[in-house]
């Protein structure tokens, strides 16, 4: 098994946490499927493990942490550039 790059906190989540710096193009595994990181994603940041359409919920801890501000694809870095909080 390759080095573990990501950690899924809750089965409902559509993002996983990067627990080891994920280089661009690196392969990571989730639910027995392999995906490719679309860009470098540093430790502690989030990677999409499902396609999330603009306006859809971003889910971590099994709860909504924000809304996608653009279409997000599996392997994308998920952060302030493509997610905004729901709280004013």
């Amino acid at each position: 098994m390759s080095a573990k790059y990501i950690h899924l906190i809750n089965d409902k989540d559509n993002v996983a946490v990067v627990i080891k710096d994920l280089p661009e193009g690196a392969k990571f595994d989730i639910f027995n499927e392999s995906y490719i990181a679309k860009s470098f994603i540093p430790f502690g940041h989030k990677v999409a493990i499902a396609n999330i359409k603009k306006g859809e919920d971003v889910i971590k801890y099994g709860e909504v942490i924000g809304m996608a501000t653009e279409d997000i694809n599996i392997g994308d870095h998920v952060h302030v550039h493509n997610v905004k909080g729901m709280r004013a």
């Binding site: 906190i9 946490v17 990067v18 540093p42 430790f43 502690g44 940041h45 989030k46 971003v58 971590k60 801890y61 709860e63 909504v64 942490i65 924000g66 998920v78 952060h79 302030v80 997610v83 905004k84 909080g85 729901m86 709280r87």
Partner: peptide, 26 residues
């Protein structure tokens, strides 16, 4: 709330205040 999550939090990978608080209440 204005500076929350803080710049340090954002560098660390936290995107929204919901995410930060959930990390705590989890």
């Amino acid at each position: 709330t204005g500076a929350n999550p803080s710049p340090g939090n954002i560098r660390g990978g936290l995107t929204t205040i919901e995410e930060k608080s959930l990390g705590c209440i989890y």
